[in-house]
Simulated assay, not measured.
Amino acid sequence: MVQRIGAEGLKKLQMSGFDIHTIGCLLALAEIAPASDAFRKKVLECRSKQRSRRWFLNAVIEYGSGTNVVIDQLLHTRAGENILSLIIALLSVLDEGAVEVLGGIFNLLKTPFDHTPGISQLQEVRSTCVPLSRMMDFKDRVARTHEMILTRAFNRKRRFQYREALPDSDTMARLVILLKDIVTETAAGTKLVYYGITGASWVIEYSKEVLGLDVCFLDEGGDVHPIKGDYNTASVVVTPTAATAQQTEVLRPLASPKDILMSSERK
């Protein structure tokens, strides 16, 4: 990457406050968010619109700040597109909380400290990607999905509270890792079940929009409401009406009856 961007690119990167080592650390997370082709194309389209609408700012202000070189370097590879998709899914709905989620992902993966960006660098990541994330409609989709769930899943009308649509930072970091496992799971039929209304809308949109997974949710009466695909093909099942502290559960297909039978050693 150093050879590709050259001395001028490194100078712009340095002026932005961004460390090239930070980009390498982010690219190492690429497999954690295997974004779908559709979402990656949408990111590229928004980036093209950003350039055309702000050509003067891109040429004058953003040229000096290094914003262009950071975003465009990430968009050069599939790994960069993946990590940028994840950052957009976080920044679109969170502010400073996005820094906490990224830090939490590094911690859960037990990444060595010398390969984990510091808080100041994660804040630079946030500042650099905020303009692009605001052009995406991810936040609006989460809001519409939350309203739809409140209307269709509950027998009684609930008050709309947008913050209720988002998991807390620790849960969001764990969900990113669990959903990555669902995407790469080789056994057909594996499902992630998410309980409760808090964070349900974000789980649905991140799974469907970013990762391209089939999703459905269950209403208060237990009826299935497909969002993408049906229950048989759904990799993510959300039960927003479940009043339980349990928030996630992975259901894997049974290979044989021995998977569910247990015998006692006592006669």
Rank of each mutant, 00 (worst) to 15 (best):
C216I: 13
S263Y: 05
V224N: 14
R252G: 05
Q14P: 06
K157V: 15
R174S: 05
L150N: 13
V99G: 00
V2N: 09
A245S: 13
I182C: 11
A153R: 01
Q14V: 15
P34L: 01
S169Q: 00
Q247G: 04
E8I: 08
V236L: 13
G64N: 06
L75N: 08
F106S: 00
A243T: 12
L84F: 01
S263D: 04
G17Q: 06
S127H: 10
H225G: 11
D137R: 05
R156F: 10
K228H: 12
V93N: 11
V43D: 06
F138C: 04
M262H: 01
H225A: 07
T151K: 15
S65P: 12
F18V: 15
V237S: 12
H146M: 14
G6Y: 06
A33E: 01
L94M: 09
F217E: 13
D181H: 06
E265Q: 05
G17F: 09
I20Y: 11
Q123V: 13
S16W: 10
V125Q: 08
Y195E: 12
G212H: 06
D214E: 14
P226V: 05
P112D: 03
D170V: 04
S207M: 12
A234Y: 09
R134S: 10
T233L: 06
L211F: 08
I71R: 04
T67C: 11
R266H: 08
F160H: 13
A200F: 11
Q247Y: 10
F106K: 00
N82Q: 00
T145V: 12
V224H: 07
Q121Y: 10
I71T: 07
R158A: 04
T198I: 12
G212L: 07
V101Q: 03
V69I: 15
L132H: 01
N155W: 00
V238S: 09
R40T: 06
A187L: 08
R156H: 11
A38H: 09
I23Q: 15
M136K: 06
E81T: 00
S16N: 09
R174N: 02
P253Y: 01
L102H: 05
A35S: 07
K110P: 03
Q246V: 14
S235A: 15
R53W: 13
S120G: 05
S235E: 15
E100K: 09
M15D: 14
R252D: 05
F56Q: 04
L109S: 00
V101K: 01
L57K: 09
L27Y: 04
F106C: 01
R4Q: 15
V238A: 11
G6T: 09
L29T: 03
L74Q: 08
E124T: 15
W202M: 10
N82T: 02
L109Y: 00
Y194V: 15
V93Y: 05
E220N: 11
F56N: 02
C46S: 14
H225V: 13
A30S: 07
K228C: 10
